[in-house]
């Protein structure tokens, strides 16, 4: 999504108040932005704590701040700066984390970000945007840019099957419909399920939803989804994020609060920062049981039982 990110930010940079800070990342991707923004493109060096506080201060002066790094270096290293300097003051700093989830694959667990939005959503005023497809990035930049709150953009690598027409960006989108369980997915891993779900017989094909904005109290569930869940269908939530603090737990709480009874609740999630051996994003998804094969085992089998 880096190319789309660069394009979207270049378009936005006609705003003279926009400032972009990078933690020394963007080689072979952000050069057009650097050339276009000149002094307002700031390589803050390998110093993320300082970068985030600087961003907070510049936002406090009314500038339009975007901060970029590899996802874990964007939120984990400077967490206190995000908490104290950005969130406590409700400053509209946009934190862009590239390679969310297992995006950096074989680079190892220091580069993974599988607890990012759970941690950040504990902070006041924070909004999270998780584009699913490359085509979403432009709209996500617009939505985050329009918000008057701090936000975190979790970027990954969009994956769509050949010939699939990406639906226009919306915080909630339904990708397949059928008589099967309700499946809700966050992040680009959703793209890897499309072919398989579309191929399922109609009676077990899931009502497959993707969600791109959190927290849910700022992004209410669509009526159609509520209707589907209220029919006591099984529900499967999939995310490239640890179990605690993620979409699954937030959704479970919401269902309890709203007294919505679903059938079985399946939560498939990133199970470990690293395993005994290392591998690609797809390898790690399989290890965690969120690859298409593992998800199908839940979605198709449970639906057949039902």
């Amino acid at each position: 999504m880096r190319q789309q990110l660069c394009d979207a930010l270049v378009s936005r940079s006609v705003n003279p108040d926009m400032v972009f800070l990078t933690g020394d990342l963007g080689f072979m991707a952000l050069e057009p932005l650097q050339q276009g923004m000149q002094a307002r493109f700031i390589n803050a060096g390998v110093a993320e704590q300082n970068m985030v506080s600087v961003a907070a201060a510049m936002a406090r002066e009314g500038l339009d701040l975007w901060v970029y790094s590899i996802a874990p270096f964007c939120y984990a290293r400077p967490f206190e700066q995000i908490r104290n300097d950005v969130a406590f003051h409700n400053l509209p700093v946009k934190l862009i984390g590239n390679g969310g989830g297992y995006g950096y694959g074989v680079m190892g667990p220091t580069h993974h970000a599988i607890e990012d939005y759970g941690i950040l959503l504990t902070l006041p005023n924070m909004r999270v945007f998780i584009p699913v497809f490359d085509e979403d990035v432009d709209a996500v930049i617009s939505h985050a840019g329009a918000a008057q709150n701090p936000s975190y953009l979790r970027l990954g690598r969009g994956e769509i099957p050949l010939g699939f027409e990406v639906p226009k960006y919306a915080p909630w989108r339904q990708l397949t419909a059928g008589g099967g369980m309700v499946v809700i997915v966050a992040g680009p891993v959703a793209g890897t399920y499309i072919d398989a779900f579309q191929s399922l017989p109609e009676e077990i094909r899931p009502n497959f939803w993707i969600v791109s904005e959190l927290p849910l109290e700022k992004n209410p569930l669509p009526l159609e989804l509520l209707k589907q869940m209220s029919a006591r269908q099984d529900l499967c939530v999939v995310e490239e994020h640890v179990r605690r603090g993620g979409l699954g737990s937030e959704l479970a709480l919401l269902l309890l609060e709203k007294k919505i009874e679903v059938g079985a609740f399946h939560h498939l999630y990133a199970r470990a920062h690293h395993y005994a051996t290392y591998g690609s994003q797809n390898f790690l998804r399989a290890q965690s049981g969120i690859d298409v094969k593992s998800v199908l085992a839940v979605v198709a089998q449970k639906s057949l039982e039902f």
Partner: peptide
Amino acid sequence: HGLSLAAGTALALQL
């Protein structure tokens, strides 16, 4: 935190 906040403020005023 304060020195980074001050540096960011100073740079913002300059920009």
